[in-house]
C-alpha cells in the first residue's frame, strides 16, 4: 500500500471540493472494495476523503418513490420495510451479495462503484487495460470463465460484479450527484456505467470529484419481482449469472442481468432471450453464461417460480 493522506468530510459539498483540491483522491465509504485495491496497489490514491460522516445515511420518501442516501448500508437498505414491500427485487439482490459482515459496511454508492473482480485486474504482475491502459488484456485467452459476454470489447471483457445495481437497473433508479462546483445532477442508472470500448479504464460517466449523494427509486411498479443468482457455491460468491425480473401487472416483463456485462445489463423492452442476448460474444469457457441466461429468461417467461 502506498502512503496516503486522509481527511474526514462533514458535508457532501466539502467532500466534492476536497476531491477537486486533491487530484486522484478517492472517496472512501465502507472501504470493502477500495481498501483491498489499495493493498494490492491496483489503486494508489495519494489522498482519501472519508464520506462516512456527511449525513447521507437515510432513506426518505420522494414523491411516490424513495430517496436512498449514498451512505445507507447494504444491510439497512435490504431490511427497510418500504424496500421489502415495494421493491422486493432490490432487497433480494442485496441479500444475495457478499456476506453479512460485508453488507454491514458496504454502502449504496460504494456498491454501485465497486470495481470488477477480473482476477488479472487484481494481479499487478499481469497486463490489464483497465488497470494500465494500453498494456493489454490478460483475461482474453486466459481464465475467462467468469468474465463477460455482452457489451465487452477486444480491450476488456470484465463484468460489473454488483447484485444491487442489477435490481436498481430493472427498477429504473436514478443517481443524484454533486460536483465540486456545487452543481447537482441526476443520472439514470442506465447511463452511470460505460462500456469498455477502447477505454476500459473509464468505467462511469461521473466527472472527476463528482460525488454520489443519493439513489432514487421511482414509484413502485408492483407486479411479481424476483432476483435469481446462480453461482458456484450456495453463498458468498459472485454471480455467474444473476437475473432481476419484474413481471408488470400488465403481464409484460422487465429484465436486468448481472455477471454478463461491464454494467448491469438491460435491453429496454426486450421480451425474450434472443433479444436480450443479441450480440453475445462468448468463449469456450464462458459460453455457458449465454445458455444459463437464456434458461433463466425462458423459465421466467413461463411463469416458473425460481429458485
Amino acid at each position: 500500500m502506498q502512503p496516503f493522506t486522509y481527511q474526514r468530510a462533514q458535508t457532501p459539498q466539502e467532500a466534492a471540493q476536497a476531491a477537486q483540491k486533491h487530484p486522484h483522491a478517492r472517496f472512501i465509504a465502507g472501504g470493502t472494495n477500495l481498501l483491498d485495491l489499495m493493498k494490492h496497489q491496483v489503486e494508489t490514491p495519494p489522498h482519501l476523503i472519508d464520506v462516512n460522516h456527511i449525513g447521507l445515511d437515510k432513506i426518505t420518501s420522494a414523491g411516490d418513490g424513495l430517496r436512498i442516501g449514498a451512505l445507507v448500508r447494504n444491510t439497512d437498505l435490504a431490511a427497510d420495510v418500504r424496500i421489502r414491500r415495494d421493491y422486493p427485487v432490490l432487497s433480494r439482490a442485496l441479500l444475495a451479495g457478499a456476506s453479512a459482515q460485508l453488507r454491514n459496511k458496504a454502502t449504496t454508492a460504494g456498491n454501485l462503484l465497486q470495481r470488477t473482480r477480473c482476477p488479472y485486474f487484481y494481479d499487478t504482475s499481469k497486463p490489464c487495460n483497465k488497470r494500465k491502459p494500453g498494456s493489454g488484456c490478460s483475461a482474453i485467452g486466459g481464465y475467462e470463465r467468469n468474465l463477460g459476454i455482452l457489451g465487452v470489447s477486444d480491450a476488456c471483457i470484465a463484468t460489473h460484479p454488483s447484485d444491487m445495481a442489477v435490481a436498481m437497473r430493472v427498477l429504473d433508479a436514478q443517481v443524484e450527484t454533486i460536483s465540486p462546483d456545487g452543481s447537482q445532477r441526476t443520472i439514470p442508472i442506465a447511463d452511470l456505467h460505460r462500456l469498455p470500448g477502447h477505454t476500459p479504464h473509464l468505467e462511469t460517466n461521473l466527472k472527476p470529484g463528482e460525488l454520489i449523494t443519493h439513489v432514487t427509486l421511482p414509484k413502485p411498479v408492483g407486479g411479481r419481482q424476483t432476483y435469481i443468482k446462480v453461482r458456484d457455491r450456495a453463498s458468498y460468491a459472485f454471480a455467474a449469472v444473476s437475473m432481476a425480473a419484474v413481471q408488470l401487472p400488465d403481464g409484460r416483463f422487465q429484465f436486468a442481468f448481472g455477471g454478463l456485462a461491464p454494467k448491469p445489463w438491460r435491453v429496454e423492452g426486450a421480451q425474450n432471450a434472443e433479444q436480450i442476448l443479441a450480440g453475445a460474444r462468448t468463449t469456450p469457457q464462458n459460453a455457458f453464461k449465454k445458455t444459463l441466461a437464456s434458461r433463466l429468461i425462458t423459465s421466467a417467461l413461463q411463469g416458473v417460480k425460481l429458485p
Binding site: 435469481i228 450456495a234 434458461r295 433463466l296 429458485p307
Partner: peptide, 8 residues
Amino acid sequence: HRVTGETR
C-alpha cells in the same frame, strides 16, 4: 436445479 444446473 433443473434450470441453473446448481448442485446443492
